[in-house]
Simulated assay, not measured.
Amino acid sequence: MIIRTITAALAFALSGSVYAAPTLRAEILVSDAVVTVGDMFDDAGTLAEQPLFRAPLPGTTGNVDVAAVRSATARVGLTQFEVNGLTEVRVSRASTLVDEDLLSTLIADDLRHRGILGQGMSADMLFTTPVEAMQAEATDSPARLDNLRYLPGNGTFSARFTVAGFDRPLDLTGSIAISIEAPHLAANLPAGTVLRPEHVVMRPVSVQQADAQGIANVDQLIGMALNRQSREGMLLRPTDVSTPMTVSKNDLVTIFYRQGPLTLTVKGQAVSGAAAGGSVQVLNLVSKRVISATAIAPGTVEVSTAPMTVAGL
């Protein structure tokens, strides 16, 4: 008799734990368009995936009274649940903001995929009419670019998007301004300045301006000398720089002649300037004659005339 009583009590306890009635939640947040039993209740059991009613629009919240909940659950076979003193349930639907920035990014990604936007290039979109921000479904892809027609000649575009949670496509038009990062001077510098990395700053310019004026690659500028005095903010072009002078006009130099083990030297003064390997006119300070030499290093030039000629210069 005692054993049967204990067994019955244990069975009752187990049945209470296994078949605990679902408990209604006071507030829920859903991502899908339909609210299920599992969304509305704790311990929903095997009925968790059963739909009850449509969720509010993305980014919005609604209240559902308990009577409506009972009506909906009865249709799917759930008749007993714990209310916990609630009179209504607050139902919110998650969302993702779709705005001009996101749509512009999709257009830019498409242009980059086509090869229209290259390295160091960016695109600014100007929509014909302002785009009001939309609350789309909370998905990995809240918006998708379905079609883009871009006319490089005048920069105009037309685009069609699909926005998650919206039945109709979104059609937009506007214009695209494409820019490219270009080197500019970071400070006022005199002619002959040999450019270092800190002298150059990258700033965007329109592709049209870049095509019309021509722009230099940074690697083409560093270590080169400015051809003229230049102001801060100036766009640097290949024609604005040249190879730095190894020997400048009026520099005192040593004139070398080498042939086998023989080396002759004489002091001179540069009459003109030249980069390394370039031809330079030099005044022999002993003979007072001007000769042609090759600049080989700062303060050093070399001639190829015969030794006796050098000695008599």
Rank of each mutant, 00 (worst) to 15 (best):
A276V: 14
T309G: 09
F12W: 11
R237Q: 14
R90Q: 14
P58L: 04
A68Y: 05
G155Y: 02
T23S: 15
A225V: 02
D146H: 09
L57K: 14
A275R: 01
K249S: 14
R289E: 12
R93P: 03
K288W: 13
L102D: 02
T128A: 15
A138R: 07
G312H: 13
A274D: 03
P307H: 03
T162M: 09
L117H: 05
L189M: 07
A55R: 05
L221Q: 01
M308Q: 14
I222E: 01
T263W: 06
L151C: 03
G62I: 11
A270H: 06
P238I: 00
A216P: 03
Q209A: 11
M234K: 11
L111R: 04
L145T: 00
S15R: 10
V301S: 04
N227E: 08
R149S: 07
R54H: 09
A311M: 15
A74I: 11
F166P: 05
G155F: 00
P238D: 02
S158T: 07
T128S: 15
F161T: 04
M308G: 11
G277F: 08
T73E: 07
V241H: 04
A297C: 07
K288C: 07
L252Q: 12
L145F: 08
E181M: 11
V266S: 14
V163Y: 01
S92I: 09
V310F: 09
Q281A: 15
P244F: 00
V200I: 15
R70A: 09
L102F: 01
L283V: 09
L185F: 03
T7I: 12
G118P: 06
V280I: 13
M224A: 09
Q80E: 14
I3Q: 13
S71A: 15
G260Q: 12
V194T: 05
H113K: 13
Y19G: 08
V266M: 12
R25D: 06
T129F: 06
R149K: 09
A13G: 04
S272C: 08
G45K: 02
T73G: 03
L262M: 15
G118C: 00
I6V: 15
D124A: 09
M224G: 04
N284I: 14
A20N: 10
A182T: 02
T239K: 11
P22K: 05
S175C: 00
V194P: 01
A108R: 04
D42W: 10
T254D: 12
